[in-house]
């Protein structure tokens, strides 16, 4: 059913390699490191599609390449090889990694939204919550302060932060609130795709539940596509429609979330699911 639609995001053959690599790399990989030349293949030929309105979960242990994938998509690091097409950029014909600096900024501000595990990366901690949201709107080209304030109010209300605190700096907020401000900032320009990188890691359980609930509401309200990285299977089970399992920089298994969790095929996935459930 979903396959007939055009994907919002389509990644093909993403590779991020540290070191020059050598002809032996293909056969001499130990985990993600080549025993012959020492090159590290942080992401190795990763391909995936995100369809409109779906949540695609990515699970894997530390060092499996989850964050490498996310950071490549948000231009925080430059991939060694691969292409990524966004439906809303260049009519889906030009890879986002070939974009100019200004185009990349446009993509980051209007087509994608990113929520980092650590809010310090996504927020200006010394600027007010409203300014953090306004920054995105300014970057998209608006010069109307009243509209920015209206939008900031609307978004902060949507993430259940009192508008009376909108002129306060996020450094004074609790961890859960900071994460919610970050989500509202990512939504400022109605992006088509939201990247969530371990958004609930490090938050206590009740706050985690609140943030997860919020993401579910946002998905229902805005119909936005979400790429969700987590090592927490409970989060994946709750939110993701489809799931991809990564290990040592490669995708080892993918399918519907229920299928992956109930009937894992790969030995690593089986181990992962059983260690938790």
């Amino acid at each position: 059913m979903m396959l007939q639609e055009t994907p919002v995001l389509s990644v093909r053959g993403l590779t991020v390699r540290y070191g020059d690599g050598c002809p032996q790399c293909a056969s001499h990989l130990e985990k993600n490191r080549c025993t012959s030349c020492g090159a590290v293949w942080a992401a190795n030929d990763v391909s995936l599609d995100v369809y409109p309105g779906e949540v695609l979960g990515i699970v894997g242990e530390s060092g499996s390449g989850k964050s490498t994938l996310m950071q490549s998509l948000y231009f925080d690091l430059e991939p060694t090889a691969g292409t990524a097409y966004l439906q809303n950029y260049g009519a889906g014909k030009k890879s986002i990694w070939e974009a100019s600096a200004a185009e990349k900024r446009h993509i980051k501000n209007t087509i994608m939204g990113m929520v980092y595990q650590n809010p310090i990366r996504g927020l200006r901690m010394d600027y007010s919550a409203a300014s953090n949201i306004a920054e995105k709107i300014i970057a998209a080209g608006s010069r109307n302060a009243g509209q920015m304030t209206e939008r900031a109010k609307e978004l902060l209300e949507a993430v259940e932060i009192l508008t009376s605190r909108m002129s306060e700096a996020p450094k004074n907020f609790s961890g859960g609130m900071q994460q919610r401000v970050q989500i509202s900032k990512a939504l400022a320009n109605n992006p088509a795709l939201l990247l969530l990188d371990e958004v609930t890691t490090g938050l206590d359980l009740s706050v985690q539940a609140k943030v997860l609930d919020l993401i579910r509401k946002i998905k229902a309200k805005y119909g936005i596509s979400i790429l969700l990285v987590s090592h927490d299977l409970a989060v994946i089970r709750m939110l993701a429609d489809r799931t991809i399992v990564m290990l040592d920089g490669k995708i080892i298994e993918s399918g519907l979330t229920d299928q992956i969790l109930e009937d894992p095929q790969h030995a690593y996935t089986q181990q992962l699911v059983h260690s938790l459930l």
Binding site: E135, I138, M148, M166
Partner: peptide
């Protein structure tokens, strides 16, 4: 680089921050 790319959003942000505060 910011000048070269006319990436002036942060300076506008400075004005907005002052307005909101």
């Amino acid at each position: 680089k910011m000048h070269a790319e006319s990436d002036y959003a942060p300076i506008w942000l400075q004005l907005y921050e002052s307005l909101i505060k």
